[in-house]
Design a protein around this nucleic acid. Structure first.
Length: 419
RNA sequence: GUGGCCGUAGCUCAGGUGGUUAGAGCGUCAGGUUGUGGCCCUGAAGGUCGGGGGUUCGAGUCCCCUCGGUCACCCCA
């Protein structure tokens, strides 16, 4: 391979045509669903004070080893956002909008991980957050919003798993019980999990190692430690999802990797995705995060969906149909004058899509380009037509005959052919 | 970050045990049809075989290093 001097840095890539238009469509679909649900868009900065993200949990991988941190010329300690939730909470504390505040977002986030299918160092997310309400119906609505979004994209192999992590006060006794259980297992527990146990016992539950499966299966259940309020809220979320016909499975081992979660957590998993990274979205309630960022003790709930993974899932499920024509007209000009320049401008100003060939190529070459362009109609002008102030319009995707029209009738003629 | 697999034209890939000017298909460009695309035919351009070192009379082929890709672990979207 002719090695280029520069290539996209590891974990990043260039997104080109069909992917970019699918991505735009996906974001527009999400924006539409969020808007219908009363959400306004927020565009936070891509980097923040390092400490904004550190509050996500110092024991989490996302903070401890995946953050892109740097110091700017003003000696400020900054970091590229690894997700949006912290920024949204920071913005909430800064602007104090009336509650419940509902915000949606779309854009890239950054984590320094080794790339693999469905995991990149720069990746795109869409998501929604609500700050300022404890109402479990919001949890339900948010989950339903994401569910409807996947359905609207045409994905049918997405599964919803939910769990509750209880309130902050429920956590310590449970963690103690968990630690005792895993410590008692001794060497039966994998070395990796024993290391995890030191940092965050909760996440041992998330281990995929077969060696740990049985020990995890017999671990204490958080359900037995839940406060009455947290248990009631979880019941209501489940009842709400049933009411809305959103199918789900309760997965007690679903703990997720950010420390800030409380009560409801959920994850969307694609069974179509033939890769280890099969979680296409996830979220939950974070009732202490706003306070951690120096704000009022206001609760929050939200989710983020991975755009790249969702697109992969769409690919693997084959939901992308044949794309529509990208162009209405392709101008073929052999006059050597300004005909093409003027004609594409005329067509574009009429609201239609037009392209042309350049570099004075032969008619045959231009016709081939017209064919490849996917345009519906070729608009041909040579010396004869130019002299008569006429054009040839030739349908490219049907057997209809080409015909000559006056230059001034071009746009109506095109419209007639395109209907 | 750790491990497995891989790295030959723009793309997908051939190139037994090292041996003369490295091939194909697709794509691109040009021509066959000096005013008409899709099919067909002909031709052309395009590669310091990821990079560096080594072994050898000789390396795309063997060894080492390095870079990159990919899959998995970890973790997460």
């Amino acid at each position: 391979m002719a090695a280029p001097t520069f290539t996209a840095t590891p974990g990043t890539r260039d997104l080109l045509n069909p992917t970019t238009s699918r991505m735009r469509e996906l974001v527009e679909t999400f924006a539409d669903e969020a808007t219908k649900a009363g959400f306004g868009q927020i565009v936070p900065p891509m980097f923040e004070d390092l400490d904004v993200f550190v509050r996500l949990g110092e024991s989490t991988d996302v903070v401890s080893k995946e953050l892109y941190a740097f110091t700017d010329a003003g000696e400020r300690r900054l970091a590229l956002r690894p997700e949006f939730t912290a920024s949204v909470c920071r913005a909430y504390v800064q602007h104090r909008p009336t509650t419940p505040w509902k915000a949606w977002y779309a854009g890239p986030a950054f984590r320094q991980e080794k790339a693999q299918r469905g995991r990149y160092r720069q990746f795109d997310q869409v998501g929604a957050e609500v700050i300022g309400s404890h109402d479990p119906d919001l949890d339900t609505e948010l989950i339903a919003l994401a569910w409807r979004f996947y359905a609207r994209l045409g994905l049918s192999q997405v599964r919803l798993v939910i769990n509750t992590l209880g309130d902050k006060a429920d956590r310590p006794p449970f963690l103690d019980a968990l630690t005792a259980h895993f410590t008692a297992a001794g060497d039966a527990l994998s070395a990796e999990s024993r290391a995890t146990l030191e940092k965050n016992p909760l996440r041992v539950l998330d281990s995929k190692r077969e060696q740990d499966a049985e020990i995890i299966a017999t671990a204490p259940a958080l359900a037995d430690f839940l406060s009455d309020e947290a248990a009631a809220a979880f019941d209501r979320v489940q009842a709400g999802l049933r009411l809305l016909d959103v199918p789900f499975v309760v997965e007690p081992k679903l703990v997720r990797g950010l420390d800030y979660y409380t009560r409801t957590t959920f994850e969307f998993v694609s069974d179509a995705l033939q890769s280890a990274q099969n979680a296409v979205g996830g979220g939950g309630r974070y009732d202490g995060l706003v306070a951690d960022l120096g704000g009022p003790a206001d609760p929050g709930v939200g989710f983020a969906l991975g755009v790249d993974r969702t697109l992969l899932a769409c690919d693997d499920e084959g939901v992308f149909g044949a794309s529509d024509a990208e162009l209405d007209a392709f101008v073929v000009d052999t006059t050597g004058e300004f005909a093409a320049l003027r004609l594409v401008d005329t067509i574009r100003r009429a609201g239609l899509r037009a392209d042309r060939a350049y570099d004075g190529r032969s008619m045959k070459a231009q016709m081939k380009a017209a064919n490849r362009s996917g345009a519906s109609v070729a608009v041909i002008v040579g010396p004869d037509e130019a002299a008569a102030d006429e054009l040839v319009v030739r349908p490219l995707r049907s057997d209809a005959e080409q015909r000559r029209v006056a230059t001034s009738d071009l746009v109506p003629a095109l419209r007639g052919l395109l209907d």
